[in-house]
Design a protein around this nucleic acid. Structure first.
Lengths: 339, 339
DNA sequence: CCACTGACTGGAACCGGTTCCAGTTAATAG
DNA sequence: CTATTAACTGGAACCGGTTCCAGTCAGTGG
């Protein structure tokens, strides 16, 4: 059925294979008469060219790879959605590599960036170390980091430092002076993917405190694995100390939810007795009325994918760096501290 | 760098290309000595075989396609996760086709099922009409429907009828006799993807009522677009009528959340004054303590992907039909009706 | 009338694997 | 010692496109 080849078409149309190929590729060097004959033969045979054979002779895969820890956190899915939207409008195929363990990440970083596998690569939320980055750079596969960073690689990131600062500044503006921070662990082994935003948001936290001349209190910063339940436990620790914070900045919305649970456990009303602010603005955040810092997740995918397409179309550039802004979404979990 | 071919390896190792190919494919017909020579040459050249060329000569794409409306509802992502998990363990690539409009669905149904594009296909939550199904069947591309149905295609579905019945039976067991149902629209144009579960869950609703000899009241069934806000509005309609229901079965958890919002609007306490039960058991459900019917989303992806791999390995079978059970998850939104 | 140009065309060579057939070699049987 | 066989091996042919070179032919200029 689908088994006719370009040679069958050539024979039927009474032309050479080269001519058929020219017709298929809209070459101008074909007379109108010939073109019509070829198109008729194509229609009669219900021929369509083999993508596989094209790939071999073009030495391109017509494929874009995406490496990401998609399913581990809701935010990643939203970025992927933006990526897919862009790629779907091209004739590239989108090949998915999901990463749920550091081993799998390393395997992907090793095996995927090969010219015969993908023409271009998007990496979401996974910042490569120098060794991996060098492999990407020498692999000749154009690669864009989205929500991830390496100084020598193209990337589109959100301004986590400014975002963290914005969150804490909001609490300060409300009158808070005792502000806790609950985050993922900043160091291995509890930050196996080395999500670098943690450091950035932490830095934003510190800068906002400094700017307001509020001394940093290490006992106000609790770290642990990224999950609601861990955040809940950390909040218990945080609030059970003498002179506890009156407001908490959470590294992520997921953790903010754990903080709110802990407040409920302890009989503290939010926001009257405890203010909570998150980061990301995931869908749940709106539902529970969480004040948070929004980053435009979908857009980051769109921008990254478009950068990659440009890179594939045009020759090499200098390292492209895009930083996206954040936005304070003021809902119902922050308020002035009680006197 | 990556440019060495099997012929380079053959020359360096002093053997023929066929022999190198045999070594690469672990053929037993190679002497140990020769194998070592070849492996040494491979290592020296840092050679790895071109996937593209393999595809052409094997006449396989080494690719599995997934067509789905992934990002429109959280449940789909969870299924995809199960699919990815299975595919990642093979050497198939996973190519993603996201569908957000009926046009895009039709385009995917038309263009993707081609032997030179994918070796096998998984379709999530989109039930093809007969015309499309015939194209799939005649395309020679093994295809599995997950959470979708066509009588002549392999599929793995959840037992939506039994699930709906289970939900309503739970309400009846609690003593409810006035039970509403809020669902997606059952007919076009408001059900553009023809999600068939709606009919099934509706049927489960009707069966449970019949079994308890409770007459069906059409005014207790409200339909609308799938969203929290629409469900909220429908609930207002439902509860503002004389003799309103004391319990509501929601087609999905998302809609159940809208129902709860509406109850709050009206000052009705859940579950004391209104019982609500959902369907799916999405992540949010646990968070808000929603009683619901769980379907094992992740597992449906795993099972479907494994079915496809078997189909790719073995010759044609009879139509495979798998039905997965559901489970009542009893949380805090259902209770006996008030006297 | 010849040389030359431009427009178009045919088809071999190529992309880099796999496969199959025809050897070669060594071992075993007769 | 020869015939037969088993165990390996080399390499041509093939998968189905694209590309490029060497034409062919009509038209133009001298």
């Amino acid at each position: 059925m689908n088994s006719s080849t370009i040679r069958d078409v050539a024979k039927l149309a009474g032309v050479g294979v080269g001519t058929v190929s020219r017709v298929l590729n809209d070459s101008p060097d074909v007379s109108e008469l010939t073109r019509r004959k070829v198109l008729a033969a194509i229609a009669e045979l219900d021929f369509s060219p083999s993508v596989i054979a094209r790939r071999l002779s073009l030495r391109k895969t017509l494929t874009i790879g995406v490496i990401a820890p998609f399913f581990t956190r809701p935010a990643f899915v939203e970025r992927l959605r933006g990526v897919e939207k862009v790629i779907a409008q091209t004739n590239y195929d989108l090949v998915l590599f999901n990463v749920e363990t550091p081993e799998r990440r390393d395997a992907c970083f090793r095996d995927v960036p090969r010219r015969d596998r993908v023409d271009g690569l998007l990496i979401l939320s996974l910042s490569p170390e120098d060794a991996a980055a060098n492999r990407f750079l020498s692999s000749q596969v154009p690669t864009i980091l989205i929500d991830a960073y390496h100084p020598q690689m193209h990337h589109v990131v959100v301004d986590n430092i400014a975002g963290g600062q914005k969150a804490v500044q909001h609490l300060i503006d409300l009158g808070h002076r005792q502000i806790g921070f609950i985050s993922d662990a900043m160091e291995n082994p509890f930050n196996p993917f080395r999500f670098s935003h943690i450091h950035d948001r932490y830095q934003g936290y510190r800068q906002a405190l400094d700017a307001a001349a509020i001394p940093f209190r290490p006992e106000y910063h609790k770290q642990g694995l990224h999950s609601r339940s861990v955040a809940r436990q950390l909040t218990h620790d945080l609030l059970s100390q003498p002179d506890p914070p009156t407001a908490i900045f959470a590294y992520s919305d997921t953790q903010a939810l754990g903080i709110i649970e802990a407040a409920n456990d302890l009989g503290l009303r939010v926001p009257e007795q405890l203010s909570v602010i998150g980061f990301d603005d995931i869908e749940l955040a709106e539902y529970v009325g969480l004040t948070t810092i929004r980053q435009n997740l979908y857009n980051s995918g769109v921008i990254g994918a478009n950068m990659l397409l440009e890179l594939l179309a045009a020759p090499i550039h200098a390292v492209q760096k895009v930083t996206l802004p954040t936005e304070l979404i003021n809902r119902q979990t922050t308020a002035p501290p009680q006197r």
